[in-house]
Amino acid sequence: MNLDINVSDKDSTAVVALAGEIDAFTAPQLKEQLLPLTKESGKVVEVNLENVNYMDSTGLGVFVSALKSTKENNSELKLVQLQDRVMRLFEITGLTDIINIDSTVRGGS
């Protein structure tokens, strides 16, 4: 499986739309695109996971390092439209308490 990464970076907000699976094979690509965005002070990085049907713990690792980077660089990370299976992973790991996740709109099939 592949991961499509679509970044639209306008002014102070970057929207990263993902589609596919985030696993050990695709996580490095995601990291490469996501981390530089968080290095810009004041930037809001919104990641849309509506079309991500599978994520494993390597994917969580990418979001954790992005979160740490936002704290160092005074930017912001926000995850939106998570599918249930992906949301569960954030819940189990307790990351829902420390990452800004908008779970009001669920993504997915």
């Binding site: 969580l60 954790v64 979160l67 740490k68 790991t93 307790g94 990351l95 308490d97 420390i98």
Partner: peptide, 9 residues
Amino acid sequence: ARGVVLGVT
């Protein structure tokens, strides 16, 4: 049992 993963905060 709730709790955040080790090594984040």
